[in-house]
């Protein structure tokens, strides 16, 4: 999740209709600049080089989220929605993005789910199925604790001050195409 503000200037975002590295490119209404939704970085336009501040969110199920946060607000639906439009895509291990791309296919299969963090330019991918208990791991010169909370969401905190970092749930193909130098936990080398 992004703070949609650059130097006190508030921005609103629309879907640009473009894809970069098989993921959403946002456009701000105010300047027409193009932004990567994965990194929050402006790639083209007046605000090129600016980066949106990130707020940590978690991805989990409604049951686990609402059990842990019973007073939660949920985005109101205008129509009944019974599943994801992309479920067939999610379920097919051979469908890797919708456009040609390169990723680190030797490390693990493209549809492996990872939790990605980025510290001081160093990327780390934690394999979802391996995170059965809290881990302490170093990334970008910073000691991190990464754990699954009561609401089912995976969070990362700096050991030094308990401050939280944004964690991205991603397919391995997507994460490794953005961050080809990423480290992986558990380390399989």
């Amino acid at each position: 999740m992004h703070v949609r503000r650059i130097a006190d200037r508030e921005l609103t975002f629309i879907v640009s209709g473009k894809l970069w590295r098989n993921s959403l490119v946002m456009m701000d209404r105010e300047t027409g600049s193009l932004w990567s939704h994965l990194t929050g970085e402006c790639l083209e336009g007046e605000l090129t080089g600016s980066r949106l501040e990130q707020i940590a969110t978690v991805q989990t199920t409604w049951k686990d989220w609402s059990d842990a946060h019973p007073a939660t607000r949920a985005l109101k639906k205008d129509a009944e929605i019974h599943g994801s439009r992309y479920q067939k895509y999610f379920d097919d291990p051979d469908r890797i993005g919708i456009l040609p791309m390169t990723f680190l296919s030797d490390t693990m299969t493209g549809k492996t789910i990872v939790h990605g963090v980025l510290v001081n330019g160093q990327a780390l991918a934690v394999v979802d199925t391996a995170l059965t208990s809290p881990i302490e791991v170093e990334c970008g010169g910073t000691a991190l604790k990464i754990f699954r909370g009561k609401d089912g969401g995976v969070r990362a905190r700096r050991v030094a001050d308990e401050s939280e970092l944004a964690v991205r749930l991603a397919y391995w193909f997507a994460w490794s195409s953005y961050f080809p130098h990423t480290r992986v936990w558990p380390n399989t080398e």
């Binding site: 989990t60 199920t61 946060h69 939660t72 607000r73 985005l75 994801s84």
Partner: peptide, 29 residues
Amino acid sequence: MAAEETVMGVATGTDAVCWSTWQLDRHEI
């Protein structure tokens, strides 16, 4: 909501909010 429906959530201490990713498929932002 369905029990197994995936959501993106954030809790600040004073507020907790979540967005269904099934719903976000149709809007993205």
